[in-house]
C-alpha cells in the first residue's frame, strides 16, 4: 500500500510548443488532500489535465508516478481505469449523450440515487451532458460524474467557482465524502488522494486539507499549511510567494 501515492517529478509540459510547466515536483501520499493556489494562467489546470493524460499537453521531461507506475505514456481512459478522475473547470458539452447514460456507463449501471437527489439533479438526467447547463449546474454534473466514477486520486479544478452559497454547501460536502475526509473515516483508513485548485479557499471550510502549494509561472514556488498560505495570499497576494521562490 505504500506505493499508493502520486508523485510528480520534475515535470515539464508544453502546449503547442509553448512551455507551460517547467519542473513541477509534488507528492501526494495515500489518504492526503493537497491544495493548489496560484495566479490565473500559471499552469494549475495544465498540471491537472496532464496528470489525467490529455494528449495536447506534451510532457517533454519528468515523470508522473501513480501506484508505482510511470503513467506519462498511458492513454486517458486507462488512467481513469487506474483510478484518476477530474472535476473540470470548463467541461465540454456532449450532445446526444444524456447525463443518465453517462452515469450508467461509468458506474456499471449503479446509479447513486441519493447523491443525485441531494444535488437536485433528477430533472437533468435526460438532458445532454452539460449541454446548456448553467455554471453551477455544470459543477453539479461534474461532481456527480466523479461520485459515480469514484476515483482514488480526485482532482478538483475550482469546484466552487460560480456556485451559490447553498449549492456550495452541497458540493463541498459531496467532495468531502468523495475524498474520505468526513469524520466517519478514520485517518488511518483513508486511501483517497486529492488535489484541489481553488482561488476563493471556500472549499477549505469543507475539506480538511493536509498541505498547500502555490504555483507561479509553471513552478511550485512554495508549500505549507493550507490555511496559513491562504491567509498570506489574502493579505499580500502572490507577491510573497514569488519572493519565496527567489529565496529558495
Amino acid at each position: 500500500m505504500k506505493k499508493n501515492k502520486l508523485q510528480v517529478k520534475n515535470l515539464h509540459v508544453e502546449i503547442e510548443n509553448e512551455k507551460i510547466l517547467e519542473g513541477v515536483n509534488l507528492t501526494i501520499p495515500r489518504g492526503e488532500t493537497h491544495i493548489l493556489f496560484g495566479p490565473n494562467g500559471c499552469g494549475k489546470s495544465t498540471l491537472l489535465l496532464t496528470i489525467m493524460g490529455y494528449p495536447k499537453y506534451k510532457v517533454t521531461k519528468g515523470k508522473i508516478i501513480f501506484k508505482g507506475k510511470n503513467i506519462v505514456k498511458m492513454p486517458l481512459n486507462e488512467r481513469a481505469k487506474l483510478g484518476i478522475g477530474v472535476m473540470y473547470q470548463h467541461p465540454p458539452a456532449v450532445k446526444g449523450v444524456a447525463l443518465k447514460k453517462m452515469l450508467n456507463i461509468i458506474s456499471d449501471n449503479k446509479l447513486k440515487k441519493k447523491d443525485i437527489d441531494d444535488l437536485s439533479l433528477a430533472n437533468y438526467l435526460d438532458r445532454d451532458l452539460n449541454f446548456g447547463f448553467s455554471g453551477g449546474e455544470m459543477k453539479k454534473s461534474e461532481i456527480i460524474q466523479l461520485i459515480h466514477q469514484n476515483p482514488e486520486l480526485v482532482l478538483l479544478d475550482e469546484p466552487e467557482s460560480g456556485v451559490d452559497i447553498e449549492n456550495l454547501k452541497i458540493i463541498g460536502n459531496k467532495a468531502k465524502h468523495l475524498m474520505e475526509k468526513s469524520l466517519n473515516y478514520k485517518i488511518k483508513n483513508r486511501t483517497k488522494m486529492g488535489l484541489i485548485i481553488t482561488h476563493t479557499g471556500y472549499i477549505l471550510d469543507y475539506i480538511e486539507a493536509d498541505k498547500a502549494y502555490v504555483m507561479v509561472d509553471g513552478r511550485i514556488s512554495c508549500h505549507g499549511n493550507p490555511h496559513e498560505i491562504f491567509d498570506e495570499i489574502q493579505t499580500n497576494g502572490f507577491k510573497g510567494c514569488i519572493e519565496c521562490q527567489k529565496s529558495e
Binding site: 481512459n77 488512467r79 478522475g85 456532449v94 446526444g96 461509468i106 460524474q145
Partner: peptide, 26 residues
C-alpha cells in the same frame, strides 16, 4: 470534437465507445 472524445475517455470510456456514443446520440 477531440475535446468531447477525450472528456468521455477521461471517465474510463474507450475511444471507440466514445465515438459510437456520440454518433449514436447524433
Amino acid at each position: 470534437g477531440d475535446e468531447e472524445i477525450e472528456y468521455l475517455m477521461s471517465r474510463g470510456i474507450s475511444e471507440e465507445q466514445a465515438r459510437s456514443l456520440i454518433v449514436h446520440g447524433f
